[in-house]
Write a protein that binds this DNA or RNA. Structure first.
Length: 574
DNA sequence: GTAGGGTTAG
């Protein structure tokens, strides 16, 4: 073939490679590539980028290595494509090697290369120093450079740093586009800043990005994460266009706030042209777990199996959690055992399930199995494990894992874990130790920690520390009726009726009414929830029948009601 | 003929 025809055939092949990769027909693309007689840098690069855009990062990397072996001169297109593969593999050593090659070949001044380098360093290294170094070296930063920096900080969990970059971007009068807005809104959401979120929302409207779907979706998510679910819902209705992510975001927002709006919205989704996906189902199943509607969860499970979505790990994890929270731990276990692959969340969910059912020994056994399988435990695993020990009274085991996470896994316990350990010690009656841990922990104890301690003081009748804890909680939340109730009950159980009466008087003067604890029961696929003495609907006799059966079971296993708690209930109802 | 940053699931 004459040289011009070879060139023409090569261009045709390159175009075909691209279209095969877009259709995810990688084998056909590769076969074609292998048949090109003189493969130039463009052919190599399209094969590399074809692989990365389909998520085949390792294959893209191997391709790049082969290209080097054949001494094909790389260009800026090649470098930015292969950097994306390094980012996908999460291997910084590969990325920095490519960085070196970029310098050697004189393409490190190319904007695409610089932006890809930043992105790779930010994703693959622990900190942001290398990404920042590249960023500061860029003399004229474009919108992608800025957005990449904001996205990197946000994905690393530092929303404040992300907003600082955004502020600098505005000061330097760089061009803001829809990509910048969606990620900056995400940064506001990650730090729960309603104030910044609102300001950015105003700017979105002013600059005409209000109809961009990712921007709108980020706004819905931001309002939800800032605790403004009704505002999110209002905006959801105002949106000119809603895609599946919009619906999923709103459903998930309702789910996290504990509202059954998630289930209502899910049923409305069926009258739209959109079809629910794994994200939708995961949130809906989580809602079934929170609302303890087992029959609903089971129905969705049947749909999932029919649609062949039961291989999705996140969804299976949600089912493990749902069945456990609805009291059906055997179903949780069955799903866990049948999963072809599990992630750390699967292990956490099943361990939490056993823990909340009082089977700490099984949670501990699963922890051992998990480590044996090579899954690295994280903070939440230890949290589940310690709380399982706490609910089963396995204090020494709980303390062992508290030290274990620190010494063997180098995981610093967060405030919540300290709270969990305070609870562990307190429940077991080691109230003084719990108090000592509370005042020595490296965090300012919050009302949850003091609350756990107060609960322990009530259960183990330690009125001295109980008073201290209650006063701390009242400093943090002066109108908390439940704290007064707890404290007065501590006095009551000590027989200190004068102080009891004093507390009740104080409470009436300063507090809003204590929100009465609600009970719920599921009878024949219907969930009934009620407070003491409340009149229920037409099927009340079914509920009472079921309650009688439950009480009978409890008596048989030796349950003795704690009548001291009745003081609280009378007060709540009165 | 080859390259870019964004939104939903513990």
């Amino acid at each position: 073939m004459p040289p011009t025809q070879i060139k023409g055939a090569s261009i045709l092949a390159t175009n075909l490679i691209k279209s095969y990769c877009l259709k995810e027909q990688f084998k056909d693309a590769r076969r074609l590539f292998d048949e090109i007689p003189e493969r130039d840098v463009v052919a190599w690069t399209s094969m590399i980028s074809g692989y990365t855009s389909g998520g085949r990062n390792t294959q893209a990397w191997t391709m790049f290595c082969d290209m080097k072996k054949e001494d094909v001169q790389l260009n800026a297109f090649t470098v930015s494509s292969v950097l994306k593969a390094c980012k996908g593999m999460g291997v910084v050593s590969c990325g920095s090697m490519v960085h070196g090659l970029a310098v050697k070949n004189g393409v490190d001044g190319n904007m695409y290369v610089q932006n890809a380098l930043m992105d790779m360093y930010a994703t693959c290294s622990a900190g942001m120093s290398e990404a920042c170094m590249v960023f500061e070296m860029i003399s004229v930063k474009n919108d992608v450079s800025w957005t990449t920096m904001i996205a990197s900080y946000t994905h690393k969990g530092d929303g404040y740093a992300a907003l600082k970059v955004f502020k600098r971007m505005v000061q330097e009068e760089a061009e803001l586009n829809s990509y910048t807005y969606s990620i900056t809104i995400r940064a506001c959401a990650s730090i729960g800043s309603y104030t910044y979120g609102q300001q950015i929302h105003a700017a979105v409207g002013k600059h005409g990005f209000g109809s961009d779907p990712p921007v709108g979706n980020s706004l819905v998510d931001m309002y939800c994460r800032c605790g403004k679910v009704s505002e999110a819902y209002r905006y959801f209705h105002e949106m000119p266009e809603r895609d599946l992510i919009t619906w999923n975001t709103m459903i998930s927002g309702f789910e996290r706030s504990g509202s059954d709006g998630s289930l209502q919205l899910f049923s409305q989704l069926s009258s739209e042209v959109l079809h629910p996906n794994c994200f939708t189902f995961t949130s809906v199943v989580a809602s079934c777990a929170n609302l303890a509607v087992l029959h609903c969860g089971r129905q969705i499970h049947a749909v999932i199996v029919r649609r062949g979505l039961d291989g999705n790990v996140a969804l299976a994890n949600a089912f493990i959690d749902m069945y456990a929270k609805c009291g059906s731990i055997a179903d949780s276990r069955r799903i866990f055992d049948e999963m072809p692959s599990r992630d750390v969340i699967s292990w956490t969910s099943i361990m939490n399930g056993y823990g909340s059912h009082g089977y700490a020994d099984e949670a501990i056994r699963l922890f051992g199995e998990m480590v044996h399988c090579g899954v690295k435990p994280d903070q939440l695993v230890f949290m589940g494990l310690i709380s399982a020990c706490s609910h089963s009274g396995l204090v020494d085991d709980g303390l062992k894992y508290f030290h274990f996470m620190w010494n063997n896994y180098n995981i610093k316990p967060n405030q919540e874990i300290y709270g969990c350990v305070v609870d562990l010690l307190g429940r077991a009656g080691r109230v003084t130790e719990a108090y000592e841990l509370t005042v020595t922990m490296p965090f300012e104890p919050d009302k949850l920690v003091w609350g756990a301690l107060l609960g322990a003081c009530k259960a183990h009748r330690n009125s001295y520390i109980g008073r201290l804890a209650a006063n701390k909680i009242l400093d943090l939340r002066p109108n908390g009726a439940e704290t007064y109730v707890m404290l007065s009950n501590i006095y009551a159980s000590d027989g200190r009726w004068g102080e009891f009466a004093e507390m009740r008087k104080l409470m009436r003067g300063t507090c809003s009414k204590k929100v009465a604890g609600r009970s719920w029961i599921e009878v024949r696929n219907q969930v009934y929830n009620f407070v003491v003495g409340e009149k229920l609907g037409p099927n009340i006799e079914l509920v009472y029948e079921e309650l009688e059966t439950l009480i009978q079971h409890m008596k048989e296993v030796g349950y003795v009601p704690d009548l001291e708690c009745c003081i609280e209930d009378f007060e709540a109802v009165a």
